[in-house]
C-alpha cells in the first residue's frame, strides 16, 4: 500500500524532534493562573521551555506512582510529595514553594456578600438565599479540605453541607462559585484574586488560622533532566517568588 505524501508528512511531523529537553511539569490546579507567567519568563530568560500540565495533586501523585513521565511535581499538598519520596519516585523531599490561602467568593450578581468572618454567609444561609455553595472535593482536593475546615471552624459546616456542589479540583470549584450557577464558594485565594481582576467577582480572604496551612511542596523526580532542574531553581528565585506572592500565595522563608 502506498501512503499519500500528506500522510507521510503528517507522520514525520508527529515524530519527536531531536533531543530537545522540554520536560513535563505536573502542577496543582491552584497554579493554573500563576505558573504560565513564571514559565514564559523562564523561557525568556533561559531559552529553555517546559510543558505545564495542570490537575488535581492527588491524581498526579497517583499517575507519577504509576510511572507518568513528569520530571517535576508542584503539589498543593506536601503529603503527596512525601509519599512519592517514600516510594522512591522522587529525588528528595523537595522544597516548600508557597503556602496557599483560601477565600470566600461570589459573583457580583449574587445575594451573598463575601466577608472574612463568614458572618454574611451564615445569615444568607439562614435566610435561604444560598441554594448552592461550591468548594473543591474535600475527599481528595487540598483546597476542599481547607474549605471544610474553615466552614467547620465557623460552625457552618452542617448548615452548608446540603447546599454543597463539589468541584473535582479547586479550579472547577472556582468556575462553579463564580459563574452564577452557585451563589458562592470557597476557593483558593489565587483564583479569587485572578477572577476578581477579569470578571465580576467579589472575595474576602479567610483567616489563615481557620484551616491547616496549605503547605505546597514541589519535588524533582529521579528522571529529571537539566531543564527541569533549572526550572526548579528558577521557581525558588526572587522573580518566581514575587509572582507567587502577587497572586496571593504566602511565601515560606527562603
Amino acid at each position: 500500500m502506498r501512503l499519500p505524501p500528506l500522510v507521510i508528512a503528517l507522520l514525520l511531523t508527529a515524530l519527536p524532534v531531536g533531543a530537545t529537553d522540554v520536560p513535563n511539569i505536573a502542577a496543582a490546579s491552584d497554579l493554573q493562573l500563576v505558573l504560565p507567567e513564571i514559565a514564559s519568563a523562564f523561557t525568556r530568560d533561559t531559552g529553555a521551555a517546559v510543558k505545564l500540565v495542570f490537575g488535581s495533586s492527588g491524581n498526579f501523585r497517583r499517575q507519577i506512582a504509576e510511572g507518568a513521565p513528569f520530571e517535576l511535581f508542584l503539589s498543593a499538598d506536601e503529603g503527596y510529595v512525601r509519599a512519592l519520596y517514600d516510594e522512591g519516585k522522587a529525588r528528595d523531599e523537595g522544597v516548600l514553594y508557597a503556602v496557599g490561602r483560601i477565600a470566600v467568593v461570589s459573583s457580583i450578581d449574587s445575594l451573598l456578600v463575601p466577608d472574612a468572618a463568614l458572618d454574611h454567609l451564615a445569615s444568607a444561609l439562614a435566610a435561604g438565599q444560598v441554594k448552592r455553595f461550591a468548594i473543591a472535593n474535600p475527599d481528595h482536593a487540598p483546597y476542599g479540605r481547607a474549605a471544610q475546615q474553615a466552614l467547620t471552624h465557623a460552625g457552618l459546616w452542617d448548615a452548608v453541607k446540603p447546599k454543597l456542589v463539589l468541584g473535582e479540583n479547586v479550579a472547577q470549584a472556582a468556575q462553579f462559585a463564580t459563574s452564577g450557577s452557585a451563589q458562592g464558594g470557597i476557593i483558593s485565594y489565587a483564583h479569587a484574586l485572578a477572577l476578581a481582576m477579569r470578571t465580576r467577582v467579589r472575595y474576602a480572604l479567610i483567616p489563615a488560622e481557620w484551616h491547616a496551612p496549605l503547605r505546597q511542596r514541589m519535588v524533582l523526580m529521579k528522571n529529571a533532566g537539566t531543564t527541569a532542574h533549572a526550572f526548579y531553581r528558577y521557581l525558588q528565585g526572587d522573580f518566581a517568588r514575587a509572582v507567587l506572592a502577587r497572586h496571593g500565595f504566602a511565601m515560606p522563608a527562603p
Binding site: G58, N59, R62, N137, D139, H140, E168
Partner: peptide, 8 residues
C-alpha cells in the same frame, strides 16, 4: 469511582 480513585 473517580472520587474513590482520587482518594486512594
Amino acid at each position: 469511582i473517580y472520587d474513590r480513585v482520587q482518594a486512594f
